[in-house]
Computed example of a mutant assay.
Amino acid sequence: MQQIFDQLTPAQKREAERQLSLYMSGAQEVIPPEELREKLAKSIVTGSPLKIKLGLDPSAPMQGYDSVVLESDIELGGTDQHFNVLMGRHFQEKYKKEKQVVILMPLLEGLDGVEKMSKSKNNYIGIDEDPNEMYGKTMSLPDSLMKTYIHLATDLELEDKKQLVKELETGAVHPRDAKMLLAKTIVRMYHGSAAAEAAEQQFKKVFQQKSAPDKMTDVHWKGGETIPLIDLLAALELLPSKSEARRMIQNGGVKINGKKAESIHENMTVQDGMIIQIGKRKFVKLKMDK
């Protein structure tokens, strides 16, 4: 299996390894790397096209052919699309077209610090979210992601980005202060300076001074005056289900008028103006409808 590969020159071996890495990024792990390496070596030596019957991402050829039809000059994609976008260059060459320029951008990890940011994974910051929610979500970022977000998610000048990252690395700025600047910058980009300043002040009031925010969403209650807390949370749709409400209470994530709910069996006397807090950032004020 290694016979042809071993006959390659060092430059050809490097090229084979480069192509191997590229092709395996689009495979489903059904082709052993050593087998694909030998096929690549044979293709390089003989100049014959590489033929693989199994293992490639089936969307890659279709996406590649798009570049031929569109006669695209530039294709922009994430690093996870490396194989697919280069397939476009391959097809353009075969159809005697000028090959497109490929620009690959790094992926932005989500709030969990593991997966790429995605609404389906609920680890995202939405550009149309409420300023307070946007600020709070940014402040929940792991410290390890701050450098990435400073470079990829802000419109700061390049030198300002480099300076902020340097101060973080040397300890010249506290991570909390750098993260507050990051949060304020992101809110300012999508909601304006006034909203960014207001979001920062609310964050300080809620999280540093442990006070309720000045502005809260009103929720309306038409039921009885006494009800189990779990039923109240579910009826107001503050949590998606009773089981989720039960879990949140058990984890200490529900407060009524600033007091932590201690029991999942607690009965509530519903009062007009009662403040319900879910988690760290969600506050609502209950209005009794007569």
Rank of each mutant, 00 (worst) to 15 (best):
Asp289Arg: 00
Pro32Ile: 06
Arg246Ala: 14
Lys147Phe: 01
Leu286Arg: 01
Gly88Gln: 01
Gln100Gly: 00
Val219Tyr: 00
Tyr135Thr: 00
Arg188Pro: 09
Arg247Tyr: 02
Lys13Ser: 13
Leu111Glu: 08
Gly223His: 10
Leu8Pro: 01
Ala212Ser: 10
Pro175Val: 06
Asn84Met: 10
Val101Thr: 13
Ile103Trp: 06
Leu111Arg: 07
Val85Asn: 12
Gly253Arg: 00
Ala234Asn: 12
Gly64Lys: 10
Asn251Pro: 00
Ser21Gln: 15
Val165Gly: 11
Gln92Lys: 02
His90Glu: 15
Gly64Thr: 11
Lys116Arg: 10
Met139Leu: 02
Leu111Ser: 03
Gly279Ala: 01
Val102Ile: 11
Glu109Leu: 14
Ala234Val: 13
Thr154Ala: 06
Ile249Ser: 03
Leu152Ile: 05
Lys51Tyr: 14
Glu75Leu: 05
Val45Gln: 13
Ile227Gln: 15
Pro131Asp: 09
Val270Cys: 05
His220Arg: 05
Met1Ser: 14
Gly77Glu: 01
Pro240Trp: 04
Asp57His: 13
Ser120Val: 02
Ile125Thr: 02
Leu141Trp: 00
Ala196Asp: 04
Glu93Asp: 15
Ile249Leu: 07
Lys97Trp: 13
Phe207Thr: 12
Pro142Met: 01
Asp177Leu: 11
Lys42Trp: 07
Ser144Ile: 05
Val45Asp: 07
Pro175Gly: 01
Pro33Asn: 09
Ala198Val: 10
Gly192Met: 04
Lys42Arg: 13
Met288Asp: 08
Leu86Phe: 15
Asn132Glu: 15
Phe203Gly: 03
Lys39Arg: 13
Ile125Cys: 03
His90Met: 11
Met268Asn: 03
Ala11Val: 09
Leu152Gly: 09
Val254Gly: 02
Thr154Met: 00
Val284Cys: 06
Phe5Gly: 09
Met105Asp: 11
Leu239Gln: 07
Tyr95Phe: 15
Phe83Val: 04
Leu156Ile: 03
Pro32Met: 11
Arg246Cys: 08
Ile4Trp: 07
Ser72Gly: 09
Asp143Tyr: 00
Leu36Met: 06
Ala194Val: 12
Met1Thr: 05
Gly126Val: 03
Gly223Trp: 02
Pro228Glu: 13
Leu36Thr: 05
Lys205Asn: 11
Glu169Met: 07
Ala196Pro: 11
Glu129Phe: 13
Thr138Ile: 14
